[in-house]
Design a protein around this nucleic acid. Structure first.
Lengths: 234, 234
DNA sequence: GTTCTTAATGACCAATTGGTCACATTGTGG
DNA sequence: CCACAATGTGACCAATTGGTCATTAAGAAC
């Protein structure tokens, strides 16, 4: 088993590697897709320290095949990031938020239902947290996207509701942004409870989202309109 | 360097290990305290896959000394858990929440200031998340404590405010508990943003807590009083 | 059928890494 | 000052683990 401890001067004659039984030979592209898909699940469960050999076993292939298709573990992980985070954002979400033909509360509820529908799953959530702990830049990049395409638009709509000047005229204050972070953080904490701590989600998940949005508008957002959070006095 | 690959039948004569220069000889208890303290910081940064040798280097000792003081890496990690989570809970916090001589809003603000003061730090937060991802039972145990000593008391006070029956008479509904989770999750999400994602906290941290509590009482909690969350109709 | 490209394999490599152990050293009590 | 218990060390061990490579064989092209 432990050949590494064996004698060094082994004759090193013919190695015999080579394909044996009936194993599927897949075109490169197909195989890579299969590998990345499984890698996403695997690293989401095991973390990035998960061994490539274990991943290979789950795929029913040898671990050396992984290295034929990917330059190294880091390369594979990079693909995993791309698979999970790229193109997962739907531009219509932002339009949903800004469609003033509907009440803001309805828009926010629709948005968070659609959003959680897309990212509330084991892979997305855990890989996001693993990446954060590891210090990969994915998180800050993603959070910047959220701020730009969700939180700031929300702040703008809040201004409209409160009859306050548009952010173009009067920049969004940190306190206002923090309000929007509050709703977002509250909702994402549901995912953390489930996929990090391992406790079940509330059974009435959608109702919980709706309640959170409602509470946000009648609590946090109201502070804006009432002047409890003073805008423009910065 | 790589002795493992060397010849197996090495004569294995005198080993020469042994203490050398002027190094401090500390009593067991002191040394263990020092090790655990550094291990907390180390594992909080590196995760539990951090190597014992690196920890030893940070301590200025050899890694074998770790194994004289602890049965193994797992034992050390167990001590780290105990160090971080045991006795960190202050019973007076719960009394703070239930002291009806003060307005609920003031009590909640005091509580969350004290609470975040105690656990909002790199070690507590990151080790908590690492443990969660790893599937250690620490999290569920701690969350049960939070539910029992924070969330349920909050629900009881909310009932009082709303003029509704005490939980002893009418059990707390999941929706009510979820309301309290909302505030807690929103506040803890501040810690996650900072120590998991690595983005700075709002500069006005205490003000953010206060705003969150205020919004909670005027948003979420109000749904209770207004009957938007129907109690007793379960 | 033969050729040739390339997917796939298993043996091997070498750095890591948790853990053990014989021996050296320190300082304290008699 | 000497014995001795206990602290601390460096060498070693063996399982892991990311990565390489010569060899094999599937199947498309001719």
């Amino acid at each position: 088993m432990n050949s590494a401890t064996g004698r060094r001067a082994a004759p090193r004659t013919k190695r015999d590697g080579g394909a044996h039984a009936l194993r599927p030979r897949l075109p490169t592209e197909t195989r890579q897709r299969i590998i990345v898909a499984e890698a996403v699940r695997f690293f989401a469960e095991a973390g990035f320290e998960g061994q490539t050999r274990v991943l290979a076993k789950r795929l029913g292939i040898t671990h050396s095949l992984l290295y034929r298709h990917f330059a190294g573990k880091d390369d594979l992980i990079e693909r995993v990031y791309r698979e999970v985070y790229l193109g997962r954002w739907r531009p219509e979400w932002e339009r949903l938020l800004s469609d003033r033909s509907r009440p803001l509360e309805a828009r926010l509820k629709s948005f968070y239902r659609a959003y959680t529908d897309a990212i509330f799953n084991l892979e997305w959530v855990r890989i996001f947290i693993f990446a954060g702990l590891k210090g990969v830049d994915i998180n800050t990049r993603y959070l910047a996207l959220i701020e730009r395409h969700v939180l700031r638009p929300v702040c703008r709509e809040l201004r409209v509701e409160a009859g306050l000047p548009d952010p173009d005229e009067l920049p969004v204050a940190p306190e206002e942004l923090e309000l929007a972070w509050g709703l977002h953080g509250r909702i994402f904490s549901l995912a953390i409870r489930k996929w990090v701590y391992g406790v079940p989600m509330p059974r009435q998940f959608v109702a919980t989202i709706d309640t959170s949005v409602h509470a946000f508008l009648h609590g946090a957002a109201r502070s804006l309109a009432s002047g409890a959070i003073a805008i423009g006095r910065r």
